[in-house]
């Protein structure tokens, strides 16, 4: 499934520029600890988190993640957004909590 398809199916907000939406999602990883994601998330995963700073994008880029989803209506800091556009890794937003959105994404990817 592409990021774009996921956005449509779950009604997610695209907070960054509309670049990188064609990236393929191979799975998800839910965590707010950056070293946990660094150590355990694989390429193509969508990262569900409440962290909103630029380092999130550094990790997303180094790990070649598909996209980042910010939960509970959290907004990215300006430099996170700028970096997202440079890396062409979309930052998405949802009003849902991490548990709910992770479950919904899991279901879509595994049905």
């Amino acid at each position: 499934m592409t990021v774009s398809e996921l956005v449509t199916k779950l009604g997610l907000n695209v907070l960054s520029d509309e670049t990188g939406l064609e990236r393929q999602i191979t799975g998800g990883y839910t965590s707010d600890l950056l070293s946990d994601v660094m150590g355990h998330a694989n390429a193509g995963k969508i990262w569900i988190t409440l962290q909103t700073h630029k380092n999130v994008m550094a990790i997303a880029s180094l790990k070649e993640l598909a996209a980042v989803v910010l939960v509970k209506g959290y907004q990215p800091e300006a430099d996170m957004l700028a970096q997202s556009n440079i890396e062409e890794i979309p930052v998405l937003g949802t009003a849902e909590e991490a548990f709910e959105i992770s479950g919904q994404i899991y279901k879509l990817l595994n049905d």
Binding site: L33, D36, M38
Partner: peptide, 12 residues
Amino acid sequence: EMGFGAGMGLSN
């Protein structure tokens, strides 16, 4: 608070 400093870095 930034999500660093969880004591996983050296092990990574």
